[in-house]
Design a protein around this nucleic acid. Sequence first.
DNA 1: CTGAAATTTCAAAAGTTTTTGAAAGTTTTT
DNA 2: AAAAACTTTCAAAAACTTTTGAAATTTCAG
Lengths: 168, 168
Amino acid sequence: MNLAEAKQQFISSWGAFGTHWGINRTMAQIHALLLISPDPLSQDDIMQELNISRGNVNMNIRDLIDWGLVQRVLLPGERREYFSAEKDIWKVATQIVKERKKRELDPMLKLMTRLEAVEGDKKDKHVKQFVDTVSGIRHFGQQADRMLDVMVKADENWFVGTLMKFFR
Amino acid sequence: MNLAEAKQQFISSWGAFGTHWGINRTMAQIHALLLISPDPLSQDDIMQELNISRGNVNMNIRDLIDWGLVQRVLLPGERREYFSAEKDIWKVATQIVKERKKRELDPMLKLMTRLEAVEGDKKDKHVKQFVDTVSGIRHFGQQADRMLDVMVKADENWFVGTLMKFFR
DNA sequence: CTGAAATTTCAAAAGTTTTTGAAAGTTTTT
DNA sequence: AAAAACTTTCAAAAACTTTTGAAATTTCAG
């Protein structure tokens, strides 16, 4: 397989992969394109490579910047803005974990804590099942939360070297 | 907050949560409803509780069964089918991990392995960046794969008891 | 300042996913 | 063997999401 084909496949499957993870196809494709570009790209470069409109590139680039996955780069002597993606996959992963934890897990745990305090007779099986379920979710979520916190703060070498010895 | 309100909130936020994870709103809501129901429910029960059509319930229940999260239950002396969800959150989580690993991670790793073998001069920076990125993703993915395998096979007590001592 | 280049915005169009509900299919009962 | 009870299917409609592109805004070199 030559580079052009391989690029196409990578970009298109990263896009498909993204859709399973609540990220839209185009955002994931732009990210993929930037991941494999040795140099920063401009909006026009991205429009050309992926055949998408200016507005679309602009919006999705902005989201990628919000997620902390892409940075604006100003090339000296150039008027226009360029964009480049964080290339270290460990950093990419921890950044995504950090954001999703903040956006999804943390609010969910807050809600579960509130719902656990539902009023009602704990001997009523409907109340009991509700409280048990919510509390089970909260417990599990808190374990996950702690684990992800450590992962986000950890250095890759510690993680891969020390912790991964358990997984053999 | 009374039970009815709490139920509503739980179902609706579980639905919203699901959409961030590539699961459709209704499927997640049905799952939520079954999680907090002490007894199995029929299609009609679900239609009523969530105000959705018969076909919709049927399709989404089928998907939940495919995911291994819901089971058909035949109540003695009853003609119709009832459905009940696995209530143990640890089992629910490992089941989801197992399925997503199989459906998404495994094929992705296969693709990365193929793409890593792209032909071309490794001194060309475009080729180099492509291979480095793909290989970085493969490495990370394989670590994750191993870790998730252990998690899926592990018993909850081992996981929470032994492993979680690391996360303090 | 000025005006050309670059970026951002956003309403409308295109595309995608989900839902509905009636018809077809299946199983059970009489 | 026909009717009744229940389940599944699927084409069309509705709802939702993404993309476009032209206009508005911002930026900056001269």
